[in-house]
Design a protein around this nucleic acid. Sequence first.
DNA 1: TATTGTTATACTCTATAACTATA
DNA 2: TATAGTTATAGAGTATAACAATA
Lengths: 153, 153
Amino acid sequence: MTVTPEEAARELLEIVPLIMRDIRSEMRSQSSPDLTIPQFRALAFLNRNEGSSLLKVANHMGLTPPSTCRLMDGLIARGMMTRQDNPADRRCVRLVVTARGLAILDASTRGTLAYLADKLGNVGDDGREVIVKAMKSLRSVFATGTRIRAVVE
Amino acid sequence: MTVTPEEAARELLEIVPLIMRDIRSEMRSQSSPDLTIPQFRALAFLNRNEGSSLLKVANHMGLTPPSTCRLMDGLIARGMMTRQDNPADRRCVRLVVTARGLAILDASTRGTLAYLADKLGNVGDDGREVIVKAMKSLRSVFATGTRIRAVVE
DNA sequence: TATTGTTATACTCTATAACTATA
DNA sequence: TATAGTTATAGAGTATAACAATA
């Protein structure tokens, strides 16, 4: 079976928003109403990269600095993150996840993964194998984040 | 290779938002700045289902009726859609895509698909085959839309 | 009374433009 | 002057609650 890029694109454009909607709706309701997807992604990144600057986060997420700043505002207002001084370069902030933020991130991760895993239990082992392979291909194509302002990280 | 539902879930939760961000950013910038993703999806649905009621659209999109109403407001304000009376049941509206809406939908579809197809040209035929297979599996799991208010369609 | 849709209100996400502080 | 971050402003997406019109 030969698949043209156009066919694959069509599938992607139809299915990916569906999955996204489902994940969002799960995160919003029920088990883990604490985080939106951007908040979740920011927390996860900062948990892996403690003390990153605002631009690093913006960079990683493909957002503009003001958008990222607002996102941080929200997380900080709800006690999941702090801004700390960076003595080495006082223009930069060090963004650090709080214990509370980590706990919420953990709970949300667990809840969402359990939800998805439950659904993926229905596609069979073959289906999951294909899905994982596809995600690896897609990562190679979509992982190169948009670079805003700073090209170097 | 055996893949647990948890592993597949983890991949999905990492990659799908990446793709989504990319699609969104493409739609916002460059070639097709005319539609957001929800607007695009609503137009596409109504193009396939002319004269659907608000609840049918809400249903399909997994949105609440007020959210959908707002979405329609935006499309109507920009001349891409009209609300028409439904003589059969005057509580219902008939949502109809205008010629202008159709033209914009077409252009946006073409632009976004071309963008995605270009990216998917880099994964090779095997990669695309796996991707299409994965999307078919995922559709079967995520296609069952959330039913809000109306369970029957 | 039940159904369809809308308005009121309130968040979050996101952007561009203009600004401040530091280098 | 260049870089990091913020504030100002604006529009879209989304929800819940309350309401109007029709069945």
